[in-house]
Computed example of a mutant assay.
Amino acid sequence: MLIIENESHTPLHVSLLETIVNEHTQKEVELVFINSADMHALNLEHRGVDKTTDVLSFPIDDFPHAPLGSIVINYEYAKEKALALGHSHEDEITLLFIHGMLHLLGYDHEVDQGEMREKEKALIEQYALPKSLIVRTEEA
C-alpha cells in the first residue's frame, strides 16, 4: 500500500508507483514531498551532509504490521532535473521513487558491489523510464 503526502501537487504516475510498491512488498510505504530547503535540513540532520539532495529513504525496523518506511522526495530538485534532462516531471519522480524504494528494501549502492545499480536498471527497463539516478551519477 502506498500513502502519499503531496501538498506540493507534484504530478505523479500514481498507478505506476502503487504497482512498484505492490510488486516488492506487502508493507505500507509512505511517499512525502518537500522543498529544497526542508530537504537540506533533513539531509544535514540525518546524514550530516550540508546540502540539499533529491531523495532520502527512512526504513522502519521490521516488526509485525510495521510499514516498510518513508521515501522523501525534493519536488523542486526533481522538477529542475526533469527539465534539464528533457523528460517529464512524473518520470523523474518515478525514478527517484524506485531509487528510494530499493534503499527501503535494503539495497545500498554506496557499499554494495553493483547489485542496487543492476536492480535499478532492470526496473527502469521494465517500466520504460529514462536513465536511472545511479547511472546518471556514474556518468557525471
Score class of each variant (00 low, 15 high):
Thr52Asp: 07
Gly69Ala: 03
Glu80Asn: 14
Thr52Trp: 04
Thr137Met: 10
Tyr75Cys: 08
Ile124Asp: 09
Arg47Glu: 09
Leu104Asp: 07
Lys119Trp: 04
Tyr75Thr: 04
Ser70Tyr: 13
Leu95Met: 12
Glu76Gly: 08
Ser57His: 01
Glu118Gly: 01
Glu76Asn: 14
Ile71Gln: 10
Ile3Glu: 11
Leu133Ser: 12
Gly48Cys: 00
Ser57Gly: 05
Asn35Ile: 07
Leu2Phe: 06
Glu125Asp: 08
Ser8His: 11
Arg117Trp: 01
Phe97Tyr: 11
Leu31Met: 00
Thr94Phe: 03
Lys131Gln: 13
Asn35Phe: 07
Gly69His: 03
Ser88Val: 02
Asn6Pro: 15
Gly86Arg: 03
Val21Phe: 04
Ser15Gln: 14
Met101Val: 00
Asn22Gln: 09
Glu90Arg: 12
Met39Glu: 08
Glu76Asp: 14
Ala66Trp: 05
Lys51Asn: 02
Pro59Met: 12
Ile73Asn: 04
Lys119Cys: 05
Ser36Pro: 07
Ala122Phe: 05
Gln113Asn: 15
Asp38Ala: 11
Leu83Lys: 15
Leu95Ser: 13
Leu102Met: 00
Glu115Tyr: 02
Val55Gln: 11
Val49Leu: 09
Glu5Arg: 09
Ser132Asp: 05
Leu96Asn: 09
Leu83Glu: 15
Asp91Gly: 03
Tyr77Leu: 12
Ala41Met: 01
Thr10Lys: 13
Arg117Thr: 09
Gly114Leu: 08
Arg47Leu: 04
Ile20Pro: 05
